[in-house]
């Protein structure tokens, strides 16, 4: 994988390579180079299978991280291509023209994180949620607890304990 990295590094302005295992490595790329890189990986390097496309919300850094995990079946190894994007009005170029299945992931990311992929099929349609009326629920500024308390009826009497403190207390009770 290092060889592959060395050959592509200059051409696609790749970031540092993070080799996690012999058969798994992660690399960062600029958003405008991603499409080219993925096409190249698929058509020339044999990374023909898109395993997943997922997002991570780095709210402290004000960034979204998209991870495109691609797999080379012949060599049984994976590369995760990471793209960092600003969190406001996030848009990303769609890759459904490289892998049609990506459209489903993109629809999910649009609904759950609010990341737009203009031109991706049915990207603005509801995916899992029905009639959602708040900010996308996977964004970390979304407070699920507050939303849940506001929306759903609660049965009183439910208690929460900090497990460590509670067990300690129980132990002390047992001894005393």
């Amino acid at each position: 994988m290092l060889e592959l990295y060395d050959t592509l590094k200059e051409r696609f302005k790749l970031g540092e390579l993070k080799q996690q295992r012999d058969d798994l490595a992660f690399v960062t790329v600029e958003a405008d180079r991603l499409h080219e890189l993925l096409s190249h990986l698929r058509d020339v390097e044999g990374y023909t299978h898109l395993v997943l496309l997922t997002a991570v919300d780095w709210i402290e850094e004000d960034l979204f991280q998209l991870t495109y995990l691609v797999n080379n079946r012949d060599e049984a190894c994976d590369i995760g291509v990471r793209v960092m994007l600003p969190r406001d009005n996030t848009t990303m170029k769609t890759i459904h023209d490289i892998w049609p299945t990506a459209a489903t992931y993109q629809r999910e990311l649009r609904e759950m994180f609010g990341i737009d992929f203009p031109g991706s099929p049915r990207v603005d349609e509801e995916f899992i949620l029905e009639g959602w009326d708040d900010i996308p629920p996977y964004r970390r500024e979304f407070d699920t607890k507050a939303y849940s308390d506001k929306t759903f009826a609660v049965r009183p009497g439910r208690e929460t304990h900090d497990p460590a403190a509670y067990m300690k207390q129980q132990r002390e009770k047992g001894e005393g």
Binding site: D134, K145, S148, T151, A153, V154, R155, G157, R158
Partner: peptide, 19 residues
């Protein structure tokens, strides 16, 4: 169904069925 169980803070599951 009784009080939300482990989905007590979920954004899309109900917590009290008899409502």
């Amino acid at each position: 169904t009784i009080n939300g169980g482990m989905y007590w803070d979920s954004y899309n599951t109900i917590k009290k069925l008899d409502e």
